[in-house]
Design a protein around this nucleic acid. Structure first.
Lengths: 349, 349
DNA sequence: TACGGGGGTCGCAACGTTTCGACCGGCCTA
DNA sequence: TAGGCCGGTCGAAACGTTGCGACCCCCGTA
């Protein structure tokens, strides 16, 4: 088998120097139209389809690839519309700069970063896995001196893109209080590695080690809502919302309002309420967080807090691009907004 | 700013040759424990975190990256559980070999392949975008001599991983006929670039240019079902299923059974039927295709055809790994299976 | 004592590009 | 007509590895 043609071969065939041949492809630098055509013709002749990307990267000192660190179980992870929209934002912005997106599935709970993260070429990384300061993935990147952008997590000395989680949840709390609700049940996102999913004592929850979970809980309290019952979900899944919904609706006295820390959880709450024949919002109000599309929800429009998810991804990508180019990048905290729907109403008398 | 340490620096600091230093990291070749420790110590001292991946790739002639070509709009694309599960399978298998997964969003309709596909380093590619033989993405890869694995599409001279779409849909048709249904409405997946979404004449549908759409339609006919009404969906989305569901249920005489070319579409059909107060399956039977989890569907268990989606991804990745290593890989066609649920029943009298 | 073998180390030549500086004419301007 | 400038081309030196072959020395064996 004959090996692939290189720039040297093309140059020889075209009767020019290697430097000139390079110019014909890179476009940077002066070259006459005639020469360029000659080189391109020779290239076509030899089946040469452009400079070897690896060699180019080595010479340029840049790989043109941004690592995107996501949670290991893509199947669960990408079932979450929030993750997908973030990724979509990232992909859009990276695409505009012709940068590659290397997906790196990571399981920080395993205690070590994947081999890939240690060895793969990348000019910068975007951490979508919510890894905190001490996490393996973060350490590996630091050791490799790969600049990192954290999404939804603040890490000292790193750029991070976040939203005002606490303020958003406070708005929900105030909204519910304004409607006269005083008995509120809550299903939270995972609380942290050392807290089991299931019931949570609202009076002594301990501090969640997941930044946005902690922030959203804090927001609830700031808004004057101390839940009468709480459940910790295994993940942002509808099934968990259903399970938690039944658990919460079993509480005595029954909560008049239920809050999900994500829209998927809230959708589950809604389904649980429906299963029990409860009318929403007459019998029970339900609110979520995220503002994602749930086309299968039917007539109901979920009261929720919309966050600019795609924008978060785009900003993260833009920051990563800047860092990859050796420039500085700034952290950002984006605003969220309460969007009242049809699933919340006055508390029953 | 001081530039990053290289193997040369480490070797010098450790007082050994570059080759020996390399040995300490690659592990390939004989090296005394003492020397290795010395080199590693020097490396730690200099903050050297292992060989530069790009240089290594250049030297080795392999980048350790597999390109995964997906449809452009990640947001729509990844809303589809099928796409996600496939990707999950791919990621799992690639991860086991410590290979990177470069996500390349592509819009073949635009007529040209993304810059990234032309220029990014990859040892092989997996096409999840259903690109047919002539598509830009396929051409670019061929020109670059990047071996490709096609999923759900057969391309002459390339490896492809598919399922028995026709057989699956034939099983659905036979199932429905066995239940006495003769008036069947269908919502198909997109038919091809030059066929508008919306109503389709079941008697003269023309041949779909999307291989699995064509195969599934053919399977229906093979099973003895000539639909009385048909709708072409914009994509595998619940909303489209709902829209099509209403359109199909408006047909006179009303179909007694509805078939969706995907579970998401079928779920939409189900929701449309519910919205109209129709009982499933007493008033209308509904069947889908894919066998994905739809936890929000409630009590109903969708009658569907399960395909080994994750397995498809795993096989595709395995094939890509083989091709990247210069070995041969074989195409595969996986079996699907009818899984009767609670959404199909005897045709109303 | 001489010889063979093997573990460990080292030099050097790639891998395929980009880019910097030098060089060479020809053309414009003074 | 001479000087300067600029468009176009070229050589050569990196970029940071890996891996082949050579080499050296020590030990075991004949």
């Amino acid at each position: 088998m004959t090996t692939r043609a290189t720039l040297t071969d093309v140059a020889r065939a075209a009767g020019v120097s290697i430097s000139t041949a390079s110019l014909a492809f890179s476009g940077a630098g002066p070259i006459s139209a005639a020469t360029k055509a000659k080189v391109l013709a020779a290239a076509a002749d030899l089946g040469y389809s452009g400079p070897n990307p690896v060699a180019r990267s080595l010479r340029r000192g840049r790989s043109g690839v941004i690592g995107v660190v996501v949670r290991k179980d893509l199947r669960q992870n990408f079932r979450d519309p929030v993750a997908i929209q973030t990724l979509d934002g990232v992909a859009t912005t990276l695409g505009e700069s012709d940068l590659g997106m290397l997906l790196v599935p990571t399981d920080d709970a395993s205690g070590q970063a994947p081999e890939l993260l240690r060895h793969a070429a990348m000019d910068a990384a975007i951490l979508l896995n919510g890894a905190a300061a001490g996490a393996p993935s973060v350490r590996v990147l630091r050791d490799r001196a790969v600049p990192a952008v954290h999404v939804d997590t603040a890490v000292r000395g790193s750029v991070s893109i976040r939203v005002t989680d606490a303020a958003g949840m406070r708005a929900v709390a105030e909204h519910l209080r304004g409607l006269g609700h005083s008995a509120v049940g809550v299903v939270t996102l995972p609380w942290g590695p050392h807290v089991e999913p299931g019931p949570l004592d609202p009076a002594r929850p301990g501090r969640s080690s997941v930044p946005y979970t902690a922030a959203r809980w804090a927001g609830l309290l700031e808004g004057g809502v101390l839940p009468v019952a709480a459940q910790v979900a295994r993940g942002s899944w509808v099934e968990e919302g259903i399970r938690a919904g039944h658990a919460l609706l079993d509480a005595m006295p029954r909560p008049t309002a239920l809050v999900g820390f994500s829209d998927l959880l809230a959708a589950g709450l809604l389904l649980a309420a429906r299963e029990r024949g409860l009318r929403v919002p007459q019998d029970v109000s339900i609110a979520g967080f995220d503002g994602v599309d749930l086309p299968w929800l039917g007539e109901d429009v979920l009261t929720t807090v919309t966050q600019p998810i795609q924008e978060k991804g785009r900003l993260a990508a833009a920051a990563a691009i800047a860092l990859a180019a050796g420039e500085r990048a700034r952290s950002a905290v984006l605003e969220v907004e309460l969007r009242p729907g049809t699933t919340t109403g006055p508390a029953p008398a």
